[in-house]
């Protein structure tokens, strides 16, 4: 099984949510809106680059249309390998966390 770090999981979930519109800025915004966590655009792209190298996402450069201004965007799509890895990682976490959340809450409340 391929290991996915927490940040990579967040990115892949964002890619799932955004579908065909998954580019760096949108992913960053999605993570920020859902989790309140901010990440730099550079960090998102380097993580996406790693995931692409591992065959988990596929990248394509957006077409430049006549009315478009500025630099192009790079769009990402989740590959089956990535989807499976995310599924497995998340299941693993869920399996491990099963029945322990109440205890975790209690421990977290302690001073």
């Amino acid at each position: 099984m391929s290991y996915l770090g927490e940040f990579e999981q967040l990115i892949l979930f964002a890619v799932v949510e955004l579908g065909d519109n998954a580019y760096g800025g949108a992913i960053r915004q999605c993570i920020e809106e859902r989790t309140g966590r901010t990440a730099s655009s550079g960090a998102i792209y380097t993580a996406l680059g790693r995931l692409a190298d591992r065959g988990m996402v596929n990248a394509r450069v957006g077409a430049t249309t006549a009315g478009q201004v500025g630099r192009p965007r790079k769009y990402y799509r989740l590959e089956p390998t990535g989807a499976r890895a995310l599924q497995e990682t998340y299941s693993t976490i869920q399996a491990m966390a099963g029945g322990l959340l109440a205890q975790l809450d209690k421990l977290a409340q302690e001073r």
Binding site: G25, S41, I44, R71, P72
Partner: peptide, 9 residues
């Protein structure tokens, strides 16, 4: 792409 995203953000 990063620069584009910075501008977008």
């Amino acid at each position: 792409f990063v620069l584009r995203d910075l501008d977008d953000a």
